[in-house]
């Protein structure tokens, strides 16, 4: 079984991403959406939350990055950008979806 986790909070304001990383089994995928995309930026004092979670694959929703004026070139290395179509594909390629609210 593999899970697609969605996180929609900035890690600078809430601990949602930390909870997801702590409770996601190895091999899981995490998609950052809405304000969750702020957690995908490199060079911040919370970037380590993602950088240290080596057992998980991270994705970020492109339209939400663009809406917030964040450049893809500033993402933490290894994070993949997907559009809504890619979001749907991730829900299909994983066995279930867990939203971290």
């Amino acid at each position: 079984m593999s899970i697609l986790h969605t996180v929609n909070k900035s890690t600078y304001e809430r601990d949602t991403l930390e909870a997801c990383v702590r409770l996601a089994a190895k091999g899981g995928s995490v998609l950052l959406i809405e304000d969750g995309v702020y957690s995908a930026m490199s060079g911040g004092n919370k970037s380590s939350v993602i950088e240290n979670a080596k057992d998980l694959s991270f994705y970020v929703l492109g339209p939400d990055i663009k809406a917030r004026g964040l450049g893809e070139d500033r993402l933490i290395d290894g994070i993949k950008v997907v559009d809504y179509k890619g979001f749907v594909e991730l829900t299909v390629s994983n066995d279930s979806v867990t939203a971290w609210l």
Partner: peptide
């Protein structure tokens, strides 16, 4: 909250993909 709009965009993409 953005979640309603995210849901709309997700639904549109899912329908377009034939789901």
């Amino acid at each position: 909250h953005e979640s309603s709009v995210t849901a709309i965009n997700f639904v549109k993409a899912a329908v377009e993909a034939g789901h």
